Simulated assay, not measured.
Amino acid sequence: MKIETGWGWIFLLLAILFELSGTTAMKLSEGFTRFWPSLLMFVLYGCSFTLLNFALTYIEVGIAYAIWSGVGIVLITIVGFVLFKESFDLTKLAWMSLIIIGVIGLKLSSKVQ
């Protein structure tokens, strides 16, 4: 892996973390009825999309977007369970496992550009 490509994965990881934070702020905004979480959501999503844009200069769009969304889905499900006491069962675990397998497969199959 070239060092330049490493930056793409760093940007993608940060984009995922900002997206996770933005989605958490969205939940806390209670349908835009709370000002600060609502404002924070827009800022965090803006950061996420900016970082995703930078990642796309190093990583193929299909791979980057699939990983960004797949990892985001898994992480926000965990956050929902832990912070918001949302339901979690074996069926969700099984489907999330398939997402994780897909993300790993995409990462392993991605070419160094």
Rank of each mutant, 00 (worst) to 15 (best):
W7V: 08
Y45P: 09
L44T: 03
E60C: 02
M41Q: 09
G102E: 11
F84L: 11
F35A: 14
L52E: 03
V79G: 08
I101H: 11
I73G: 02
Y65E: 01
M41P: 02
S29N: 09
L56V: 03
L12T: 08
N53G: 10
L12Q: 01
A94S: 13
T23Q: 04
V82S: 01
A15Y: 04
F35W: 12
K111S: 14
S21I: 08
K92V: 10
S110H: 13
T57V: 01
G62I: 08
L14D: 00
L56G: 02
A25R: 00
A94D: 10
G22K: 07
G31S: 11
W7Q: 04
F49P: 02
S109F: 12
G31E: 12
V74I: 15
G105Y: 08
T50L: 01
G105D: 12
F32D: 11
E19L: 01
S87W: 04
A64K: 00
A64M: 03
I59F: 09
F49E: 02
F11T: 09
I101C: 06
W95M: 15
P37I: 09
V61L: 12
L108A: 09
F84H: 11
L52F: 04
T91K: 13
M1T: 11
M41R: 05
F18E: 08
L12G: 04
F35I: 14
G62N: 14
I99A: 11
V43S: 05
D89K: 06
I99H: 12
T23H: 12
A55S: 14
S109Y: 13
S69V: 15
L108K: 07
E19G: 02
E60R: 11
L13N: 00
F11G: 07
I3V: 12
Y65K: 03
L12D: 02
I59P: 08
C47K: 08
G102C: 10
L40A: 15
S110D: 14
L12F: 10
E4F: 07
F81Q: 05
K85D: 06
F88L: 15
V43H: 10
V79K: 11
L83F: 05
T24A: 13
E30K: 15
G6K: 06
L12S: 09
V61K: 05
L106E: 09
T50R: 02
L83N: 05
L14M: 10
V71P: 02
S38N: 13
I100K: 06
R34Q: 12
R34H: 12
I73A: 11
F84I: 13
L14Q: 04
